[in-house]
Nucleic acid binder design. Structure first.
Lengths: 182, 182, 182, 182
DNA sequence: GATTAACCGAGACGGTACGTCCAGTCTTATG
DNA sequence: CATAAGACTGGACGTACCGTCTCGGTTAATC
C-alpha cells in the first residue's frame, strides 16, 4: 500500500532503532520521527510496531525466497551442524536479535502477528528441516525437526546459557540418536 | 516491604486480571484499582507488572519449594510422560498461561526480571530434570533435559501445534532414544 | 499553538472553575476535565494553571486593548474617583477576584508568569495612570501613580479592611494632596 | 503542643529550606525530612506549611515583642525614612523574603493563615505607624499609614521596580505632603 | 525509682495531581 | 490527491506530597 520509497525509509528506520534501543522501546512515534514520515502514513500500512518489525525482517531476506535454506550435502550430521550454526548466527545477529525478541514478545498478545509469524517463518522452517530428515529416511521427521529446533530456541529466548560450538556438536549428536539414524 | 495483607490483595488482583484480560493489557493502574491499593504501594514493592506477576506466581507455589517436583518411580519413561503432562498442564492452565506468557514477553526487555525468572524457575526446573536422568545413569543429563524441555516450550510459546497425548508419548520416546537409554 | 476552539473551551472552563472553587484549588487535571480536553492539550500551550488563568483573563478584556481605560474628563478628582471605583470593582468581581488572587499568589514562585503579569497588566496600568497625572502637569507622575495604586492593592490583597465609598473619596483626596495638585 | 526542642528543629529546618529552594517548593515532607522529625509531629502542631513558616517568622522576632518598632525621634521625616528603610530591609532579607512571599501567597487560599497574619503582623504594624502620625497631630493617621505602607508593599510583592534610597526619600516626601504636614 | 502517659521516629497506606509519553484519529496546509 | 505536520482525546506511566494510620521506642512528669 505504501510507496516503495516510504517502505524503504520505514524499514531502515526500524532497523536502525532496533539495535540502538532496548527491545520493548520501539514505538510508532519513534519510527515515524526517525523515518521522517507522518504517523498516519505508518498506520495506513501497518497496524503495530510488531508488524513493521516483521515486515522489515522479511524484506531483509527478500532474495532468499524460502527463508530457510536447509543445507543438503548428503552428510546429515554436517548439514545439521551447519544449519544449527546458521540459525544461531541469525538469532544472535546484532540487528536481528532485538527484532526477533520484540516480535516473539509481541506475538504473545497479538494473535494476528503470531499467525503471520508462524505462517511466514516457523512453518517453512520446520517444513524445510523435516524435509531434510525425510530425505534421509528418518522416521517421524517432523518430530525430530522440533527436537532439533526446540532446544536452540529455548536457550536463546530464555538465555539460560550462551551458545558454543561444543554444544552445537553435542546437540546434533543427540538429535541424530533420537532420529535413530545409523 | 509491603505488609502481608497488601501483598495478598495485590496477588489476588493480578491473578484475577490475568485470566480476564489479554496478556499484554495488565497495567500498574489496573492492578492498583482492582486490588484497592494505591499506585505508590505497588511501586514501593515491585518495579513492574512483570515483577508482580512473577511474585504472584511464586506465592502460588509456595508449598512446593522447588516448583518442579520431578516424579521418580523407577520407570523413567513413565516418569517423563507424567512430567511432560504436568508441565503442559501448568503451561496451559487458564490462570497460569497468561501470566507465563506475559512474563516471558517482558523478560525480553527486562533483564532483572529475566534473571529472576531463570534463577527461581528455569534453573531449578532443568536441574531437577537432569538429576532425574543422572539417577538413571544417562550420560550428558543436562543436554537431555534441554532436549526434553525445549520442544515443549517451543510448541507452547510459538503455538505451532496444540498438545495431545500421542505427541507427549512420542516426545518421551524421542528423548529416551537421544539419551541412549536401554 | 492551540486551536481557537480549544482555547475557548479552556478559557470557559477555567473561568467557571475560578468562581466555584477556592483560589488555590485549580488544577491542570480539573481544567482538562471541565473543558473536555486532554491534559496534553493543556500542556502543549500553557505551562501552568497560572498561565491559563492569565491567558483567560487577557482574553476577557480583548476588546479594551490596554486593559485600563483611565477616564479623562478634565476633572482629575472625579476621574480618580471613577478609576478607583472601577479598579475596586474589577478586583472584587466574583469572577475576577479569585483569578487575580491565584495569579498574584503563583507569581511569587513563577518568574515567567510574574514577568508576563507585569508586562501585560501592571506596567500598562501604571503607565496609563501616570499619563493622566502628567496631563495635569503633576510633578513626579509615576510616583503619584504608585501612591494611588499601592494602598488599594494592599487593602485588597491583604484584606485588612473592606472597601467603601468614603474610603475611596478620602484616598483620592490624600493622593491629590501628595500630588500637590491645586 | 510540640516540645520546645522539636519546635526549634522545625523552625531551623524551615528557615534553611526557605532560602535554598524557590518560594512554593516547601512541603511538609521536606520540612519533616530536614528537621529529622516525623510528619505526624508536624501535623500535630501545625496545619500547613504556611503556619510553620509564619510560626518560624514570629519566633525569629521573639525578642522584639511588638513586631514593628516605629522610630520616634521627633523628626517625622527622618523617622519615616528610617522606618521605610528598615521595612524594605526586612522584606528583602534573603531569609525573610522567601518566607514572606510564601506566606502572602498562601494567605490567598487559607483564611485561617490570613487572619493570623493580619492579627499578628499587619494590624500591629499599621497601628504603630498610625500612632506615630497621630503623635504628630496628623489628621487621618490611619489613612496616611496605609498610604505609606501600600506602595512599598506593591513594589515589593509585584516586583515592579527595585528599591533605592532616592525612591525612599521621594516616597516619604509624598507621604508627608498627603499628610498635610508642615 | 518505677510507672504511665504524652510525644516521638519511622514509614506504610489510599489518594490526588503532577508532567510525560505514546496510541490512534482527525484536521490543515503544502506540493 | 497524497502527504508532512501536528493538534486532538485518552490512558498509562512513574513520582511527589497530602493527610491518616499504626507501630515501637523515648522522654518526662507523676505517683
Amino acid at each position: 500500500m505504501a510507496r516503495q520509497q516510504t517502505r524503504k525509509k520505514v524499514h531502515e528506520a526500524v532497523l536502525s532503532l532496533a539495535h540502538e534501543t532496548p527491545a520493548g522501546t520501539i514505538t510508532m512515534e519513534g519510527i515515524a520521527a526517525r523515518a521522517g514520515v507522518s504517523k498516519q502514513t505508518l498506520y495506513r500500512t501497518w497496524p503495530s510496531t510488531g508488524a513493521i518489525l516483521f515486515d522489515a525482517l522479511l524484506a531483509r531476506s527478500m532474495t532468499e525466497d524460502g527463508t530457510v535454506e536447509v543445507p543438503n550435502s548428503g552428510d546429515l550430521a554436517a548439514d545439521l551442524e551447519l544449519l544449527a550454526t546458521a540459525t544461531i548466527a541469525e538469532l544472535t545477529d546484532t540487528t536481528h536479535e532485538p527484532m526477533l525478541r520484540a516480535i516473539t514478545a509481541q506475538m504473545q498478545s497479538d494473535d494476528g502477528l503470531a499467525a503471520q509469524f508462524r505462517e511466514r517463518l516457523l512453518t517453512p522452517q520446520l517444513a524445510g528441516i523435516s524435509d531434510r530428515f525425510r530425505r534421509e529416511n528418518v522416521p517421524d521427521p517432523y518430530g525430530i525437526a522440533e527436537l532439533f529446533v526446540g532446544p536452540i530456541f529455548h536457550r536463546w529466548l530464555l538465555r539460560t546459557h550462551p551458545f558454543d560450538s561444543e554444544w552445537v556438536t553435542a546437540h546434533v549428536a543427540r538429535t541424530l540418536r533420537a532420529a535413530a539414524f545409523k
